[in-house]
Every structure is written in C-alpha cells, then in structure tokens.
Amino acid sequence: MSVLPEGYEALEPFVATYAVDNAGRRAEMRGEAPSEVRDAFYAAAQPLLAPALDYLDTKQFADYDSGDKQLMWMMLSLAHVAIAVEIQQEDEERHAHLRSFMPVTRAPADF
C-alpha cells in the first residue's frame, strides 16, 4: 500500500531517505546519500514539485494525513537536492564538505 498520496507513487523508493521531518537533517541528507540516489530522486521529484505544492496547498497543515506529511518533507528535501544537481553539479562533493561546517539549526518548517 502506498504511503504517499495518489499520483506520487514514483517517489515511493525515496521515502526512507528523503521524507525527513527536520530542516537540518534534510540539509545533511543532501550530502549523505550516494550521488546516484540523489540524482534519481531529483529526476523523479522535479516534475512533481509544482503539482505536489498545488495539491498540498489545498490543505491546512493540521489536516495533513501521514502521506501528505511525507510528500511535504520530500518536496522540502528537493529544495536542497535541486541545488546540488542544478547549481553545484560537479562541485557538489567538495561543496558537501564545506557545508558540514555550517549546520542548519532552525527553520519554521520544524515547528
């Protein structure tokens, strides 16, 4: 049985890695997952970003079910992963080392 809302089954293989409920951990996961996993997640999630946000925008946070929460967290992970894939590209490995010295300690999504 799918843990994500209908239409987002393509993201199921990435739930364990990228459905992370904390901004600091999401930032860390960008660098921790192997590059093949990161690139595969980006490829699967990028076309779903706009529709996922449109879908989630129809609900209040308090009304999210478990699948909605997982989808939200994965889109938030995509915010980090996309910068690796689209901006840093071949510099991402070096960049991951630099980021390790600047942890995210607080974000509104954590509350």
Binding site: A27, F61, L76, Q88, L98, R99, M102, V104, A107, P108
Partner: peptide
Amino acid sequence: DENASERYAREYGMAMTRDIHV
C-alpha cells in the same frame, strides 16, 4: 508558513543562501 508553497519557498531561500555562505 501559510501553506506548503510558502514553507517550500522559505526552505529553498535558506538552502540557497547557505550554499553561498559555506
């Protein structure tokens, strides 16, 4: 955060800014 889009926008803004600072 009013909705998913605003939450996402703020996370992306933070991640992008941090990428420069690091």
